[in-house]
């Protein structure tokens, strides 16, 4: 029987860590450990002696793992190299999904690939969710700014909401800018004028 692999997932958000861990368990009988607390990360990782470490590509703590990856000699066996050096497409797929993987040197590619495939699938879902969330948030912010700009116009010019909206839209079209931009400028100018 193959020995269980110890896979460490560094992820402070439990809502995110859970499905990743589930995906990894579905990919094989592995020992999955999650590190949520990032202080003393190097020590925590070294103590767990993982075969694979997975971490969000944008996590600043990654640079700490880079050091571990370089420092470990063959005898120490914590984290050794990055994603299997021979498999460039896999490395790239992982990077595009927003994941970085540190893998112990000498671990056979056929054992690494299913783990990474599972992780990549989960991370892809999160990348999408994150992008959608950012878009929703931006749209909400824009709505708020436009509402404030409308209110400023209504009180300054004594017009109703519809007229204020039309005025914003016309100005935006005349200047070839987005309505949210014009609204932002108006809100800022009103702030400067103390209104």
């Amino acid at each position: 029987m193959q020995q269980k692999l110890v896979i460490v997932v560094v992820e402070p958000d439990p809502d995110r860590a859970r499905p990743i861990a589930e995906g990894l368990r579905a990919a094989g009988d592995h020992d999955i450990r999650i590190i949520a607390e990032q202080s003393g990360l190097a020590r925590q990782v070294t103590e767990l002696r993982p075969d694979v470490v997975l971490i969000d590509i944008a996590n600043p703590s990654r640079d700490i793992l880079e050091e571990l990856a370089l420092a470990s000699g063959p005898s120490e066996r914590p984290v050794a190299v990055f994603v299997d050096r021979s498999d460039e497409p896999l490395t790239r797929a992982a990077i595009e999904a927003g994941i970085s993987a540190y893998v112990v040197d000498g671990l056979r590619p056929e054992r690494i690939k299913p783990i990474l495939d599972a992780a990549i699938a989960r991370f892809n879902v999160f990348q999408q969710m994150r992008a959608e969330l950012a878009a929703t948030r931006a749209a909400l912010e824009e709505r708020k700014v436009i509402d404030r700009a409308k209110a400023i116009l209504m009180s300054a010019r004594g017009i109703n909401e519809e007229a204020a909206y039309a005025l914003l839209r016309k100005t935006a079209m005349d200047q070839g800018k987005r309505m949210a931009e014009i609204a932002q400028q108006l809100v800022m100018a009103a702030g400067l004028l103390g209104r």
Binding site: I57, A58, N59, P60, S61, R62, D63, L65, E66, T91, R92, I95, E96, S100
Partner: peptide, 16 residues
């Protein structure tokens, strides 16, 4: 803007 040097390197390497 990125949060880690390793990320800058990887994003460049992947052509992102």
């Amino acid at each position: 803007a990125f949060g880690a040097w390793a990320q800058v390197r990887d994003m460049l390497g992947a052509g992102l």
